[in-house]
């Protein structure tokens, strides 16, 4: 049996919150397929469906961290497969900029993931979520970000 269907439901303790911003046509459909195929995977992901990766403003990602996400995943159709033809090409340019900006700002990039998952790639989706969840779980809560509000209190 391949790794993705293996039963290793996390037992007790800390469970990370992971936000996934996905496009309607590919990744959401892929995640849906995983569900209808009754594949089991880590339950830590909250999915937000958008029409296209082109609609994912980098500010969504910042807002996710602000609101307590321990990790963020962004995913859409493979290049060439966007339902609106070019949305993901534009998104890719934006991600290139954003990824480097976040890295320069000192965000731990193990907490921010980008991927292409098509409507048929349920297995890829499941493996991705499991891998990302486990990695972020090992890192623990994103205290650096969550702590930013507390820094204010310290300063009075």
């Amino acid at each position: 049996m391949s790794g993705h269907t293996e039963h290793s439901a996390p037992t007790g303790g800390y469970e990370p919150k992971i936000m996934a911003f996905v496009c309607n046509w590919c990744t959401y459909a892929g995640a849906d397929l995983a569900g209808t195929s009754r594949m089991e995977y880590r339950p830590n992901v909250r999915i937000i469906k958008l029409p296209c990766t082109g609609r994912i403003d980098p500010l969504f990602i910042i807002k996710a961290f602000e609101n307590g996400a321990d990790g963020v995943l962004v995913s859409g159709c493979h290049p060439g497969d966007c339902h609106y033809t070019t949305g993901n090409y534009h998104a890719r340019r934006r991600w290139i900029g954003f990824k480097h900006l976040m890295e320069f700002a000192g965000i731990d990039m193990r907490r921010l993931h980008f991927s292409w998952v098509s409507a048929s790639e349920a297995i890829k989706w499941v493996d991705l979520i499991n891998k990302v969840t486990d990695e972020i779980k090992a890192l623990g809560p994103f205290m650096e970000y969550k702590g930013l509000k507390a820094t204010e209190a310290e300063q009075g």
Binding site: P79, G80, T86, Y89, H90, R92, R93, R94, W95, I96, G97, K99, M109, H113, F114, S115, W116, L128
Partner: peptide, 15 residues
Amino acid sequence: PMIVFSPDDKENFIK
């Protein structure tokens, strides 16, 4: 550059 794109744009972090 942010209002155009190339199908060949290179990156190594989108999985």
